[in-house]
Design a protein around this nucleic acid. Structure first.
Lengths: 211, 211
DNA sequence: TTTTTTCTACTGGTTTTCAGGTATTTTAAA
DNA sequence: TTTAAAATACCTGAAAACCAGTAGAAAAAA
């Protein structure tokens, strides 16, 4: 490891977070922060020229979705280790980041010690989670286990209108289809969410963040 | 202003944020960070001895609610200016902070320039909001304007059961009252939330965080 | 204690949803 | 291009929800 420093780049739109990470890492002589970016585009441009060891990646970016960006970065520089950095504690977001190639997931309340531990872990090819994240992954709720139903465009439209309190008749008028068609979509929504009426449907959809 | 430096204390449970704020403010010779705290209790203890000019206060703290803490701090050191620092963009949280004595509200994506601007503004007795916050305050949504309905115990019970997908009949059995009574409660819920069916009711109640 | 609110229950309606179907056309995938 | 999925449309009967008004008893607040 004494051949060269660990190069780290930071992608986060919050100046506070960038400065904070710099400050937490700067004390360490092995680490060299080679770039900080506030947008996904900027970061991607640099990655076409430079190849960092570690990428600290925020999920909430102004220009692109961090989850998609993760995949893009992994294809661009597959050997770089990506550490997701976020306040999101939703199980499926964490899993999506992993499936898109992240090597670890950290919450923003992380300490200097744990940050360094995480960086070392992913350098050694391990997958690292901060302790809260470990628990979230280990304890899926009933809804998370049953998965998020995949809705068609029409079904999503109908779902949105149901949430607005529209009646089947009104929805038919608005979408220019027969109310009988709307009833079919409604029935399919009930089936997909395993619920038996509109109230329960809205609850289920809300939990799945589909509303 | 040349008599002494502006003393600032920071209350935030994220090391990254504390380091970030320090780093953003340290360059300024007029500012002196006299303390950083990761819990509300620690901060309150210090405030009984020292009186800072500016308090940068996070709303999400592990031990206490930042909104309550704001009031406590304001009673303890009324002359100190409190700048709330948070990612919350919900209108009523912002207003609660103000009503509890905050002198400004900043989002955590703030830049160094704006942070300094905010500190100067509150020092001069102004109330400061970052631009996004200004917009949120200026544009209340329909729900925010109409306020949160006050429900009776029974109504809340019925609402919960509706959210579980229970029918009027089932609710009557479960609460040992006539289904006709449940219908009355249902009707009153619709009236209070200004909605016309169960789906809309669940949406409205969810927005009001009553579910 | 008086007043108000809450909970309860009823009548008599109308409207909407729900749960079975069937079937054609359009769109997307293999 | 064949196949599969999605969207469309229609039907019926039963169940549930919704509306509008009334009104007594119990509980809480003034």
């Amino acid at each position: 490891m004494l051949d060269r420093k660990i190069s780290v780049i930071i992608i986060d739109d919050h100046p506070i977070v960038i400065e904070g990470l710099k400050s937490l890492l700067n004390g360490n002589p092995e680490i060299d922060i080679t770039g900080t970016f506030t947008t996904g585009k900027e970061a991607v441009l640099l990655l076409k020229k430079e190849y960092p060891d570690i990428i600290l990646l925020d999920i909430n970016l102004p220009d692109v979705n961090g989850i998609d960006l993760c995949r893009e970065i992994k294809t661009l520089v597959p050997e770089a280790k990506i550490l997701a950095l976020s306040n999101h504690t939703e199980r499926n977001i964490i899993l999506q980041m992993l499936s898109n190639g992240a090597n670890g997931y950290l919450l923003k309340n992380i300490s200097r010690q744990e940050l360094l531990k995480a960086i070392n872990a992913v350098r050694n090819g391990e997958i690292y989670f901060s302790s809260e994240i470990n628990e979230i992954i280990a304890k899926p709720t009933r809804y998370e286990l049953q998965g998020i139903p995949k809705l068609t465009k029409r079904e999503q439209q109908v779902l949105d209108l149901i949430a607005e309190g529209k009646t089947t008749q009104e929805m038919g008028d608005q979408l220019n289809v027969s109310p009988l068609t709307i009833e079919t979509h409604r029935r399919n929504l009930h089936y997909k969410f395993k619920v038996k009426n509109a109230a329960e449907l809205i609850m289920a959809a809300t939990r799945c963040k589909l509303l």
